[in-house]
């Protein structure tokens, strides 16, 4: 059955600001399809973003939406969720926004295991500001601030968020939107901190400068450099170099350990004293 994605979109705000060939629209499309497959109440859903190309995504979504400061979306979202745990709170962030300036908030959001769904648009570059290297830019890659090749090491955000305590960790890629929708749906339904890194393409500021090519070639690159998580686990270590597992990487179902649930237990303990 066809999904009416427009009922979740602010049609009067379209067309979006993203460049031709950008993967952000694919992520947005998968997200609204995922929302449609859940029983989430759109009136009880808040979408929060920071700064950068990803930061503009909530403006196209017909929910309560908040476009905040650079890197701080998870901190704002934490307040929104803790103040009213009935709300479904989704954070849309980029690799610069979420892993550089907002890296500390990402770590501590995971550690608290607060029930947020964080989708990180990983296009491996600062797109909005014109192509500077981010913590997700591969070593050796060319960016406007690494004209001689990036000497930084890039992050593995899946490892990072898992270690920090996120209870749902997954990776999708824009070449496979059906899988993205499935991962977003699982993340939205998971009670606890859900982190879904999404490999995304920035042909304008990354692909063409690193001889990968345009959007199609970048999607081919994703396909060639990813394997299902189940296959990844069985691969010998030497074959894993430069290959990314896709799918659900880590999952721990323990709703009682969720932050707002734990805080409610404290409140309830006082209510009991009064009885």
């Amino acid at each position: 059955m066809a999904v009416d994605i427009y009922k979740y979109l602010r049609e009067d705000k379209l067309p979006h600001i993203w460049c031709p060939g950008c993967g952000h629209g694919t992520i947005l499309n998968s997200l609204v399809r995922a929302i449609d497959q859940t029983d989430i109440d759109p009136d009880k859903t808040v979408v929060v973003s920071g700064i950068g190309c990803s930061g503009r995504a909530p403006g196209y979504l017909k929910f309560d939406t908040l476009h905040t400061t650079h890197g701080r979306a998870i901190a704002f979202a934490t307040g929104i969720k803790l103040a009213n745990p009935e709300l479904n709170v989704i954070v849309l962030t980029g690799d610069g926004d979420g892993s550089a300036i907002g890296g500390n908030h990402l770590i501590h959001g995971c550690r608290r295991n607060i029930d947020l769904t964080v989708i990180l648009f990983n296009n491996q570059i600062y797109g909005m500001t014109g192509g500077q290297y981010s913590p997700m830019t591969p070593t050796g890659a060319v960016a406007t601030t690494s004209p001689y090749g990036n000497i930084d090491q890039d992050f593995d955000l899946v490892d990072l968020t898992r270690s920090a305590g996120a209870t749902f960790v997954a990776r999708g890629a824009t070449y496979n939107p059906r899988q993205m929708t499935k991962l977003y749906k699982e993340g939205l339904e998971h009670k606890g901190f859900s982190f879904i890194e999404t490999l995304d393409q920035c042909p304008v500021n990354y692909g063409r400068k690193n001889n990968i090519g345009g959007p199609t070639e970048m999607l081919d690159w994703q396909k060639e450099h990813t394997v299902p998580a189940s296959k990844w686990e069985k691969m010998p270590e030497e074959e894993k170099e430069g290959i990314f597992p896709l799918g659900v990487i880590h999952r721990k179902d323990d709703p009682e350990s969720e932050y707002t649930a734990r805080y409610q237990q404290i409140i309830d303990s006082f209510a009991k004293e009064d009885e």
Partner: peptide, 29 residues
């Protein structure tokens, strides 16, 4: 705060404290 159903949270830094308080306000608190 928890005695009256309110919420307290110690954040990871000062910026987050300010951000989180604004988030609480947007949720109506």
């Amino acid at each position: 705060l928890p005695k009256v159903g309110g919420k307290f949270i110690q954040m990871e830094d000062e910026l987050a404290g300010m951000a989180c308080a604004i988030g609480g306000s947007l949720s109506g608190k």
